[in-house]
């Protein structure tokens, strides 16, 4: 689910050909798992169909690589919404959390806004689980424990990320 938003975000930074877009994606978000070219073009096709990108002036030659993709206002709004809306306070969010932070830095938005919003969502969920743990059976408690410890891992990651923001910004914008 993060791939279309990540591509859209990269297009907000600058309009791009499919190939360059794939290269940027792999640089920032690939982490050793490069995005198949086919997936880039099919995703761009869907984004175009939904009016989130449009095809800019086409360069010489033919084929998908000649097309220049430009984000639309609808696309910009979707990136903005995605960055500021917290995902539900569930564990195992490393991919989406990571993508949002790096993208926010790339787009020169303040990632702390997003991290604070997400932190509040995580804490809310953690309070619910803590209450459940207080009042539930041992089995409920065991399950709640698991959720709490994973949420805690995410929250620690968010704290560390705030602390590392200057270094991250320097690295990403280098």
């Amino acid at each position: 689910m993060t791939v279309p938003l990540a591509l859209l975000g990269l297009l907000e930074r600058e309009s791009s050909h499919g190939y360059d877009l794939k290269r940027d994606y792999d640089t920032y978000f690939g982490r050793g798992k490069p995005l198949p070219a086919g997936q880039v073009y099919s995703t761009l096709g869907r984004l175009a169909r939904d009016g989130k990108v449009e095809i800019g002036e086409t360069g010489p030659g033919s084929g998908p690589d000649r097309k220049r993709y430009v984000i639309t206002d609808v696309g910009v709004t979707q990136v903005e919404t995605w960055l500021t809306e917290p995902v539900e306070g569930e564990p195992h969010l490393q991919t989406v959390l990571f993508t949002k932070v790096v993208l926010a830095v790339l787009l020169e938005r303040d990632p702390r806004v997003y991290l604070d919003i997400q932190r509040a969502a995580h804490m809310e969920r953690m309070r619910e689980l803590t209450e459940l743990r207080r009042s539930g059976s041992t089995m409920d408690t065991l399950l709640a424990d698991h959720g709490v410890f994973h949420l805690e891992a995410d929250l620690r990651w968010m704290d560390q990320t705030v602390a590392r923001l200057a270094a991250l910004t320097a690295e990403v914008r280098a």
């Binding site: 995580h122 804490m123 953690m126 309070r127 689980l129 803590t130 709490v148 410890f149 949420l151 805690e152 929250l155 620690r156």
Partner: peptide, 8 residues
């Protein structure tokens, strides 16, 4: 600790 803060 977030886990402790979640009691508040």
């Amino acid at each position: 600790e977030p886990r402790v803060a979640a009691h508040a």
